[in-house]
Design a binder for these strands. Structure first.
Length: 405
RNA sequence: GGGUAGGUAGCGAAGCGGUCAAACGCAACAGACUGUAAAUCUGUCGACAUAUGUCUUCGGAGGUUCGAAUCCUCCUCUACCCA
């Protein structure tokens, strides 16, 4: 397949980017690629310590996909080696270092999820343990001699932590270097990342130069804002929409974003050329509700299917607009026939403790077959006929006994 | 190696001998409201029991005291300063 002409490539590549370092070099590389008819090697690093991909990840994956569509080579680096070292800060906290096996599993899960956006057949997967694991201590010293402490402290999060007296471990300094080593090893032409990766990308660029390789072009993508509309999307902040969220959750969470975010999400998350894009952008001003629903359907359709999107929408309307129970709740069979509501809530996982369960009842959020449970001492009799238990707005259960008679 | 300041509930941060299960903020959960799972307002937010009761918490281990998150000793971890 021939590569599209320069102009066309640049248009697609530069869309939505924050910074390209440098644009001039990018052009040169594309021209060279056209002349030699060889694809550019485009690198994207993946952190397998957190294999729950969310829409924030999709922004940069989407860009990698653009390169694939232009005929270039997409290289997904699974950072299984760096993940095995474990994340530094807060050793007092539970931050289990990944074993080789976990890192591999997570990496595979990462790839599987990323394949919802990338073309898996055209993606090259690399595990950085392959080369980083083979380095000797002497190699590491040689590598680190190419970078100064002052340079490291330029990175704004290091700088911030250093100033505010938070600990920085030496091996955190090694992270950007390890990532840079990936670029040295791969001799890639381009590296992608979020704006928060800018420093690391630049270290990779410098390091390639140090090792006598033509330096990579660094392309940074905007960080997606989370559903709260302020902070960047992140699993730990609880404002993320994950690839693996169920369609109904994904849809609902999409609707909870502030109206002002609609166009931003639309341009960053939907593939270029999505039919509804234009209409969503237009209606976001005149009729945000419709625009957002359309956007939410498109997102769900992207990760699942348009049928799933329709279903998610009707589920949402039923449960949250009309405030009815959903129609397809999973049936839970319990070995009891008589049980207190408190115990039942704990057993179903709706409450984290009995105290929590009592609280829910006191707050009048527990309904059995549409009837409010008023007493915290209440108990119910289960039969073979399923009953519907509702705890709060979102937790529904259908329960029955598995005992006969 | 020496010094100084610290380690408090999921996180951040008050408390500095009893009235501390521990202020406050964030997160979370619930209720009201809404096109929404947003925003806003209200309430809850260690566990067990239930009418204001019991038990386990304030880095760890001991100690002083009728009584400690608060005082003492040792240990441990973190930051900064001096070597």
């Amino acid at each position: 397949m021939p590569f599209p002409p320069l102009k066309e490539q640049l248009d697609l590549i530069t869309a939505n980017t924050v910074e390209i370092i440098t644009g001039q070099e990018l052009e040169t590389k594309i021209n060279h690629s056209l002349k030699t008819r060889s694809p550019l090697k485009v690198k994207l690093g993946a952190d397998p310590s957190r294999p729950d991909l969310h829409l924030g990840h999709s922004v940069v994956l989407r860009k990698l996909r653009d390169f694939q569509d232009l005929g270039h080579e997409a290289i997904l680096i699974i950072g299984n080696f760096t993940a095995m070292i474990g994340d530094p800060s807060g050793k007092s906290k539970t931050r289990p270092q990944l074993t080789a096996e976990e890192a591999r599993q997570n990496g595979e899960s990462y790839f599987e999820q990323a394949s919802k956006i990338l073309d898996p057949k055209k993606t090259t997967i690399c595990w950085n343990s392959d080369w980083l694991g083979a380095m000797s201590f002497a190699d590491v010293i040689r590598l680190s001699s190419h970078c100064t402490v002052a340079r490291m402290l330029e990175r704004d999060d290091f700088e911030r932590r250093y100033r505010s007296g938070e600990p920085i471990s030496i091996h955190e300094f090694l992270y950007p270097l390890a990532q840079a080593m990936d670029s040295v090893h791969l001799k890639n032409d381009i590296e992608l990342g979020g704006t928060d990766q800018k420093f690391n990308l630049l270290v990779g660029r410098d390091m390639q130069r140090e090792y006598g390789i033509l330096p990579q072009v660094c392309i940074t993508m905007p960080l997606l804002v989370g559903t709260g509309g302020v902070e960047k999307m992140s699993k730990s902040l609880g404002n993320a929409i994950c690839f693996n969220d169920l369609p109904a959750d994904m849809y609902g969470r999409m609707l909870s974003i502030p109206d002002t975010l609609i166009t931003n999400y639309c341009s960053l998350l939907l593939p270029p050329g999505t039919a509804d894009s234009h209409q969503i952008t237009e209606e976001s001003v005149t009729d945000p509700r419709t625009a957002k629903r359309m956007l939410a359907r498109n997102i769900v359709a992207l990760y699942y299917s348009s049928e799933a999107a329709e279903e998610a929408e009707s589920h949402f309307d039923r449960v949250f607009v009309q405030k009815k129970a959903p129609d397809n709740i999973e049936l839970v069979k319990l070995p009891h026939s008589e049980i207190t509501v408190v115990d039942l809530l704990v057993e179903l996982g709706a409450a984290s403790s009995k105290t929590d369960a009592r609280r829910m009842i006191q707050q009048k959020s527990v309904l059995l077959d549409e009837e409010r449970i008023e007493e915290i001492t209440a108990s119910i009799t289960l039969s073979m006929e399923p009953k519907t238990l509702r705890a709060g707005k979102r937790k529904f259960f259908r329960i029955a006994t598995e005992k006969k008679g």
